[in-house]
Amino acid sequence: MLQEFKKIIREEEDFVIIDAKGIYYRELNELINELILNGSKKFRILNVNGQRFIADGLRGGYYIEIYGTAGDDLGGFANGPTIVIHGDIQDGAGNTMNEGKIIVHGSGTDIIGHSMRGGKIFVKGEVGYRVGIHMKEYKEQIPVIVVGATAGDFLGEYMAGGRIIILGLEKRPEVEDIVGDWIGTGIHGGAIYIRGVITKDKLGYSANIKEIDENDRKIIEKNVREFCSYFGLDADEILKSKFTKIAPISRNPFAAMYSDSRENK
């Protein structure tokens, strides 16, 4: 395979550079996999144009730079790689990711970070609907999504853990909506932090507005600083803003829905 694709691969310092123009996703991913088996650790993939599943199921601390638009499920099931996208991402980036980082200089579409259990996603621009849906957490793994611009409806739906931070930069959160409706519908774990003030009518079933405490502030600060470091933004300025915290009304919002003939609860 490596022989076959010799023409589109070259090496520069410790990077392997792949020209993905016109390459089918399956071949591109197979190629990356072969290069990994061959010992390569850092990749720069040029002319990416919607190829799906890049870094899907990848285990280990690989570094992948993508120029162009990454296709669906970028970094799905990933377990450790850092992926930097100079362009946009599409649906399902970070789907069920366990560990790793996805840093996006452009924007994203729907269900980014679906069911992710660990790792971080930073999107400089905006994201679509149902972002962070069913995010989880497990022991010390607490996934984080930070979005620079806005997010669509159903943010953090069914969320069971993790943290989502929406900054709405270049918007004025006092007067403009930076997040769609039905925030945290069915949420039963984790927390969502939104810059500005959010009123209760924007929340979905089982979500509630909670007081921000010292620990929340630390989480916001740490992740906003990391976010800004990737995109050359001024963290201090952003951190001056007020944030609203949205968290579940309880950890077991669906108990008490059932009846049982023999158990007297």
Binding site: G92, N95, I111, R130, E137, Y158, R251, N252
Partner: peptide
């Protein structure tokens, strides 16, 4: 791989599958 004592909810649909194309994905 979820916290002890938290509800384990499997929603009716897969959030990333609303069509045959999504299933294929």
């Amino acid at each position: 791989m979820i916290p002890e004592g938290s509800d384990a909810i499997s929603p009716a649909p897969h959030h990333d599958i609303y069509s045959i194309e999504d299933l294929s994905r």
